[in-house]
Every structure is written in structure tokens, then in C-alpha cells.
Design a binder for these strands. Structure first.
Lengths: 162, 162
DNA sequence: GCAGATGGTTGCTTGATGCAACCAAGTGTG
DNA sequence: CACACTTGGTTGCATCAAGCAACCATCTGC
């Protein structure tokens, strides 16, 4: 998208998509949320072209979704962190993940599960803990391999863990 | 995206984005949800190129998100409806809308509000009625102009309603 | 001093998008 | 009947973003 917009749209969904609707943006946000903070980690994890990753990170920083922090001076090395605005995308990610789980998961079930850190309960498509009923936010949840993890791994062309 | 995928990704978010992560797809889904069912309506409402709209509609039909129904025989004319799979995208749309409202809305407030049809209560970012507490689905909610509607209209380049 | 890791940038090619023109069937109007 | 208009597209062309590979620069370890 980069510089593109949805002219004439008066809906906040369009506004959101102007920012995070680009091909890789949401996946980058998800990856950073999962603890991948460095350029190389993100590149390997996503399989994204390096120049595109570079452009997306810059865009996400410009939009106030990511923050770049130096973790060493020389050579200058940075890590990328989510701002509050970025963390606020969590419900949207959960909703997309649940939709994918429901409609595209293999026979084994979802490849990844989202669980409430404190009580271990599964998280609903609304980002609510099914165990304790709490409305969760990004920091309250963790991602763990689900029942369909291995078959998804295989389908993705990786070797099965021996 | 069209034929592109996110190879190596084992997350359902990536799977979802393969389908509905394209530039216009989610906006089309939202528009159909709001009652725009015909080609021309969608084209005018979105300002999308006609060939792209055509390709997207076909893609969404292929993915089982939209359904095409004839409403007259000659000349053949169709309307597009959401399937259950398409309607299930509602929580994701609501989450994106809420995020946009929170972080990009003008001073006046959100241009559109989502309300619970039955009780009129506002809908939270989790798709839950703030009035009666019910967990809502696509059919339970309606979109109405919000406090920032007019200024958003003006910003979008339309004339203000006199 | 030479390889390797890290974090990028630069060119080139391909493919998706936007725009405008065109097509085709049917409907309303005089 | 002729003629314009509406609806729902398709086709062709130009542009811009994405993918890929090569290159650069700095520091670390041996």
C-alpha cells in the first residue's frame, strides 16, 4: 500500500487497513508480539524480502505501532518493540487467528493455541479467557503449539522434529 | 495477493491473511455486511477499479466467503451475500474498527458506531454489547453514523449534507 | 587477517493494481 | 423503431510495490 489510501471511505476499518492492511504488516506485528524483535529473526521467521521488511518496519514505526530501541552502541543494533498502539492490535489478531482456526485448520485442529498466562485457559475469538472469563489483553496471553502443530509444520515444508 | 502465500508460516493468522489480507477484500466484506450487494453499489461505495472488484469478488466466492445469487434472469443480474464463513469475519472487522476508532479517529469521535440492534447498546472492541453484555454476531449489530461522521465526510471530500 | 554474524541498501524483474475504453443485454422514451 | 441509459462486467495498457539476489558496512571470534 505505502502511500495508498482508500479515498472516500468514512469507516475506521478503512483507516486501520491503510496502516496495517499491507501484505506483511500484521504478520510482523504478530511476530514481534511473539518475541521476535530483531531484523534477522523477523526475516527468517517470516521469509519476507529484506528490503520489504525494512520498509514495513519503518512504516510501522512511523505509524507509532513499533518502537526501535538500541540494545548496543557499536555496531548500532536495534530491537523492535510494540507500542501500546501496537499491542492494541491484539484483539484483531486473535479474531483473525480464530477465524483461520475455525475455517482453515487441518483435521488435527489449530496449529497454535492462545492461552491465558495466569490460569492456562484457552482464549476465545473475542480475546476472553474461557476458563476464568477475564477480558484479556496482549500481555495476558501466550502462544503455545496446538494439536495441529506437527502436521502444519510438515505442510510448511519443515522436517518433523525427531 | 492472489496466488501468493506465506510459505513456512504455521500460524492461522497467516492462513487468514492469505484469504482476506488482500488490499480490498476486508472492505468488500464489510460493505456487503452493510447491505451493499451489487457490483455497481460496491464499486461506487469503495472506489475500487472494476476489474479488481471483479477479481476480488470471484476470489471471495472461491474461498466460500461470498455467495452469488441471481435476482433476475435476463439480463443475468446477481447479488452478493456473505456465507456463514464470511459472517464469521465480523469479530475481526469489529476489532479493526475499534482499533481505528481508538487511534485514528478525529477530535469529534468515531465516524461510525456499531450498536446492538435489539437494545441499542454500543458494541465493544470484543463485539460484546456494553448495554446488555451479550456476545454478538454479525446479524445482531447495525452500523449507524457516529459523532465524527460529518467531519469524516468532509475530509473524504464529499459535500456536507445541508 | 579472514570468516562469519548482523542489519541493512541497491538494482532488476515480475506481477498486482488503477484507469479508461469497450462490450453486451435489457429498459425506458418519444 | 431509434436512441440513450443502466447494469455488470472484460480487455489493454501504464505504474508501482513486492520478490530476489547481490552488495555494503561494522563488529566479533579464531
Amino acid at each position: 500500500m505505502l502511500g495508498h489510501s482508500y479515498p472516500g471511505q468514512i469507516c475506521s476499518i478503512a483507516k486501520s487497513l491503510e496502516v496495517i492492511g499491507e501484505r506483511w504488516s500484521l504478520l510482523i506485528v504478530r511476530d514481534v508480539m511473539n518475541g521476535n524483535r530483531r531484523f534477522g529473526e523477523l526475516q527468517r521467521s517470516l521469509g519476507i524480502a529484506r528490503n520489504v521488511l525494512s520498509a514495513r518496519l519503518q512504516r510501522l514505526i512511523d505509524e507509532g505501532i513499533l518502537e526501535r530501541r538500541a540494545y548496543q552502541e557499536s555496531p548500532p543494533r536495534h530491537e523492535y518493540f510494540l507500542t501500546e498502539k501496537g499491542l492494541d492490535l491484539w484483539p484483531a489478531l486473535i479474531a483473525l487467528l480464530s477465524w483461520g482456526d475455525r475455517h482453515s485448520a487441518g483435521a488435527d485442529g489449530p496449529p497454535m493455541l492462545i492461552v491465558h498466562k495466569r490460569c492456562g485457559g484457552r482464549v476465545s475469538d473475542r480475546g476472553i479467557c474461557e476458563e476464568c472469563g477475564q477480558t484479556l489483553h496482549a500481555r495476558d496471553a501466550a502462544q503455545v503449539p496446538g494439536p495441529g502443530f506437527n502436521s502444519a509444520l510438515a505442510a510448511a515444508g519443515h522436517a518433523e522434529p525427531s
